[in-house]
């Protein structure tokens, strides 16, 4: 290696190093800091008797929406309301007794399974318990 190549390499390398050391903090600055997600364990979703048979209610579960359904046979069920396709929030349809996602016409039965449309997986099901006039919903263990 002659002197000129050495100097060129040295100056070029230093320049690159400088650029990287300026860019690094900027890139790290742009990446959002991780925030603790609000994870709900067990919450009161509704009062007993609040829901008529064949109706449903959306409630806040941690940082997302969940749905509590009272089926026409009076059975209580809870699911994550986030569609497994591209994260829209499903809505309860009383006349078909299904959960419908209007974004790409996905449809789930009241066990959370996909009946039609593009969603690839069933809705996440939650545990429902009734205790002392309140309906509790919790994540399945």
């Amino acid at each position: 290696m002659n002197r000129r190549t050495f100097v060129n390499l040295f100056l070029g390398g230093s320049f690159l190093g400088t650029v990287v050391s300026f860019l690094y903090p900027v890139i790290r600055y742009l990446i959002p800091p991780r925030q603790a997600e609000a994870v709900a364990k067990r919450i009161i979703a509704a009062k007993v008797g609040e829901l008529a048979p064949n109706s449903a209610k959306l409630f806040r579960f941690g940082s997302s929406a969940a749905v509590l359904i009272n089926t026409s046979d009076g059975e209580l069920r809870a699911f994550s309301a986030t569609c497994t396709h591209l994260t829209c929030t499903v809505r309860y349809e009383g006349d078909t007794e299904t959960l419908f996602c209007p974004c790409h016409n996905g449809r789930f039965d009241l066990a959370g399974n996909v009946i039609s449309g593009p969603p690839p997986r069933p809705l996440e099901a939650y545990e429902v318990e009734v205790s002392g006039g309140d309906i509790f919903v919790s994540r399945k263990a």
Binding site: L58, F59, R60, A65, A81, C88, T89, V90, R91, Y92, C101, P102, C103
Partner: peptide, 10 residues
């Protein structure tokens, strides 16, 4: 409203 259902016809 982040905790409401997606509106129909979206």
């Amino acid at each position: 409203d982040p905790f409401a259902s997606t509106p129909l016809g979206i």
